[in-house]
């Protein structure tokens, strides 16, 4: 069992919904990423999705686009992201880390190279948003070879047939995208999300994470009633972006929002 599966099972046994923050590696600068990761864990994060910056983040809204641009100004390459995970692991051997980004940087490194170096650094899974299962065979082989979990998205537009295919291909968890659109957009329609997640659960035993549109303790709590993991990204990055002039206030501000979400989620069980 991978670190992700074991960790999620352990949380479920304790009746705790996983809180999963997303931040872009290298934003606002590479020195902040590892302290930010530790700060988020201290504030109640159970796993971390770490964004790999890309020049053309097609599925992301303006907030995460700007995070990517800030990171790339500091030349945050995939190699450097792996170094950050390695450094994080020196103090935290437990919290699962999932890299999230686009396929091309992984393809440029080479699938086997990536899988070897990512496993060595202590990465647990990879989510490439522009890679559907149909195109994933070669990468899947490389990931499975190094016991890395391939994480896939399920969307409001996914048919049952596609959901089954995705769940057969994925391991660790699946990520339900709660709105049609890009990251950081639109408000959640909780009833619709509930219905969709219930439908997904009929098709798979994998844990279901829910993300897109979660921005405060209220929405985290609402999604916490539905999913096994609550994924929050743009709302955290907005906090970073508002504090570019006072970088020392970034970790506390991000931690504060996460802690608020944590306690709102914990109060329901």
């Amino acid at each position: 069992m991978s670190r992700i599966s074991g960790h999620l099972k352990d949380l479920a046994d304790r009746n705790r919904v996983a809180l999963v923050p997303f931040v872009t590696a290298g934003d606002p600068n590479p020195d902040m990423t590892v302290p930010l990761m530790h700060g988020m864990v201290d504030a109640g994060a159970d796993m971390i999705e770490l964004g790999v910056p890309f020049s053309d983040p097609m599925a992301d809204g303006p907030v995460i686009q700007r995070a990517s641009e800030r990171a790339l100004q500091h030349h945050t390459s995939l190699h450097k992201v792996l170094d950050m995970v390695g450094e994080f692991r020196e103090k935290d051997p437990v919290t699962p880390v999932i890299l999230m980004g686009y396929l091309n940087p992984v393809e440029a490194m080479g699938y086997e190279n990536f899988a070897r170096e990512a496993a060595a650094a202590g990465v647990d899974g990879l989510l490439t948003v522009d890679l559907p299962p149909e195109e994933a065979d070669d990468l899947l082989r490389a990931l499975k070879d190094k016991a890395l979990d391939p994480i896939f998205l399920i969307a409001p537009t996914s048919t049952d047939k596609r959901i089954e295919r995705i769940c057969e291909t994925a391991s660790g968890y699946v990520y339900y995208v709660s709105v049609k659109g890009i990251t950081g957009s639109a408000d959640l329609a909780i009833d619709e999300v509930t219905r969709r997640v219930e439908a997904i659960r009929k098709l798979t035993g994998l844990p279901v994470g829910v993300g897109f549109g979660i921005k405060d303790p209220q929405s985290a709590q609402a999604i916490g009633r539905i999913g096994d993991a609550v994924i929050v990204g743009s709302a955290l990055i907005r906090r970073i972006e508002e504090r570019l002039e006072t970088p020392e206030s970034i970790v506390p501000a991000v931690a504060e929002l996460l802690a608020g979400m944590r306690s709102a989620m914990d109060s329901i069980r």
Binding site: P132, I154, A155, T157, I166, V177, K180, G181
Partner: peptide
């Protein structure tokens, strides 16, 4: 039938667009 020209082409998009 999946849009491949040899090793090129294909469908590399986020899940939301696969069905459309």
């Amino acid at each position: 039938d999946k849009g491949h020209f040899g090793r090129f082409g294909g469908m590399f998009v986020s899940e939301t667009l696969m069905e459309p």
